[in-house]
Amino acid sequence: MAVRQRAVAALPTLLRALRKEGISKQNQPLPSLRRAFSLYDQINLIDNVPEDQLRFQEFDDTGFKVNGVRYEGSLLCVGNLLMSWTPKKFSEITTESLSIFQTVRPIPEILILGCGRNIQPIDPQLRSFIRSTGMKLEAVDSRNAASTYNVLNEEGRIVAAALLPYGVTS
């Protein structure tokens, strides 16, 4: 009880001190944002990627640039593993060309299929095969597939990409 009485007695003194502090702070100028912007400008999140993490940096009609290295032709990425991939056109993408996903562990959450320049309809048998592995399928053009892979991989998600060069049209 005595503790409570002392706390109640000290309350007016505490309120006066807080009011004084509040009045003095109102007259102070706002802090400069110049320092915040200069520090922010020095941070480049796009190039600040761990060395062991794959990052698509460029693409063209015949291949991709990944982590500073130029690759010709189709690529298959699982997590941070990069492989050359045999299909040269969309019609060559089969369950056999994606059979690696029957053995890869852990199973990626999603397979991003880069169809080349244009999005193509996915064969129902291929779609069924991908679902049977436990993955979801996202079929987009190769430019967006590479970008989506970068974002999901940077988030630390287990993701796979099967990419045809952007120049492939069918």
Rank of each mutant, 00 (worst) to 15 (best):
V66T: 00
P29N: 03
N48T: 11
L14W: 13
L113C: 13
T86E: 14
R16F: 09
D123R: 09
K25P: 04
E51S: 12
S84V: 13
R127E: 15
E154H: 06
E58Y: 00
P29E: 05
S38A: 13
Q57C: 05
F37V: 13
F56L: 06
I110D: 08
E92P: 12
G73S: 04
A139Q: 03
F90N: 12
G22Y: 14
A160Y: 03
R19N: 11
P108C: 12
L113W: 06
L82C: 11
C77Q: 09
E51P: 08
D60A: 01
Q125K: 15
D60Q: 01
T103N: 12
N80T: 09
L14G: 06
R4I: 09
I23W: 05
A161V: 01
S97K: 12
I112W: 03
V8F: 05
A17M: 11
L76D: 09
I93S: 11
G114M: 03
M83D: 09
L39K: 13
A146K: 00
Y149E: 02
T133V: 01
Q125N: 13
E72F: 04
V78C: 14
D60E: 05
E72L: 08
A9R: 07
D123A: 10
L98Y: 10
V104F: 14
I43H: 15
Q5Y: 06
A7I: 04
L30E: 15
F129H: 03
L15K: 09
L45H: 13
Q53G: 02
L30I: 07
R35L: 14
M1C: 03
P106D: 12
R143N: 02
A146N: 00
N144V: 00
I158V: 12
Q26K: 13
D47N: 13
Y71E: 07
P50T: 04
E58M: 00
S91Q: 14
I122M: 04
L45G: 07
L137Q: 02
Q120E: 06
M83N: 10
T133W: 02
R70I: 01
R35I: 14
S38R: 15
V168D: 02
T95D: 15
R4H: 07
I93R: 11
I158S: 14
F37C: 10
V69F: 09
I93K: 12
K25D: 12
L111D: 06
D41W: 03
A161Y: 01
S74T: 05
V168G: 05
G114T: 01
P12W: 08
I93F: 11
E72R: 05
Q120Y: 07
I46Y: 09
N67R: 01
Y40P: 06
Q28D: 12
M83G: 07
K25H: 10
G167N: 01
G63V: 01
L33Y: 10
M83I: 07
A10W: 02
Y40S: 14
N80R: 08
A145R: 00
L18Q: 15
T86V: 13
I122L: 02
T95A: 14
T13S: 14
E21I: 12
V3H: 01
A160H: 00
A145L: 01
N80G: 08
S99Q: 15
V159S: 03
K20Y: 10
S132I: 01
V159H: 01
L82T: 10
L164E: 04
P87S: 08
I112Q: 04
V168Y: 00
N67P: 00
